[in-house]
């Protein structure tokens, strides 16, 4: 599903060169649920961003669904992200001006589908996360856990094969974190491939595999 071959990521400024990732070889198989763990600043999020095509590696090969990413052109990557990948962020990143329903519809805006179909799909995704009663609420009117459920609905609305979650429970209390984790486990059971960055050992233990990163290198 996702294959990283000898991936390296270096950030360069005129004065400093920072190696964020070095020699990463990782394969995420279809239907897997893996967690990436490591201390702050070790490169976990960078790795997730590379998998999500939000950033380009400095060196190495990246394959999504067996296809090598040869072009990092904006339009090509945007289309691939839209079709294949869903993102869940630690701080939810909901658009405050839009209602829950409109937020969930965002990924579908960039597909050629009718507004009624969009609405139907968004409602279904919201039903999946148990938020049908709040569709016309605005993010500021929801609790943290509810906001993250909206973010999950947005991530899955386009039925992507891959879900990338960057510390999805990091901003939530343990009860809400547990609720969100249950949702992710449920999605994985429905064959969605999930890669999750987390600090939380308990959450990581609920995934099928743990990848450990230390100082930009894969250590386990």
């Amino acid at each position: 599903m996702i294959k990283l071959d000898n991936i390296e990521k270096v950030y360069r400024t005129s004065r400093v060169e920072t190696v964020a990732l070095m020699n990463i070889n990782l394969e995420v198989k279809e239907g897997e649920f893996i967690s990436i763990m490591g201390p702050s600043g070790c490169g976990k999020s960078t790795l997730l961003n590379l998998m999500g095509l939000l950033d380009a590696p400095t060196k190495g090969q990246l394959l999504i669904n067996g296809k090598e990413i040869t072009s990092y052109k904006d339009k090509y990557l945007a289309n691939l992200r839209n079709q294949e990948i869903g993102f869940i962020f630690q701080s939810f990143h909901l658009v405050n001006d839009l209602s829950v329903l409109d937020n969930v519809e965002i990924p579908l805006l960039y597909r050629k589908i009718s507004s009624s179909q969009r609405r139907q799909m968004a409602l279904k995704a919201l039903e999946h996360v148990g938020l049908t009663a709040r569709i016309y609420h605005f993010p500021s009117q929801l609790s943290g856990g509810q906001q993250q459920r909206v973010a999950i609905a947005r991530a899955i609305v386009g039925r992507p094969k891959i879900l990338l979650a960057d510390e999805p429970t990091g901003n939530l209390d343990s009860k809400m974190g547990e609720e969100v984790m249950n949702l992710l486990v449920g999605l994985n059971e429905e064959k969605t491939t999930i890669v999750m960055v987390t600090h939380d050992k308990r959450m990581a233990e609920r995934t099928k595999r743990i990848v450990r990163i230390f100082d930009g290198r894969q250590v386990g």
Partner: peptide, 11 residues
């Protein structure tokens, strides 16, 4: 968010 979910620069 829009870029992550598939909006290109031109969009």
């Amino acid at each position: 968010v829009r870029k992550a979910f598939g909006a290109s620069s031109w969009v």
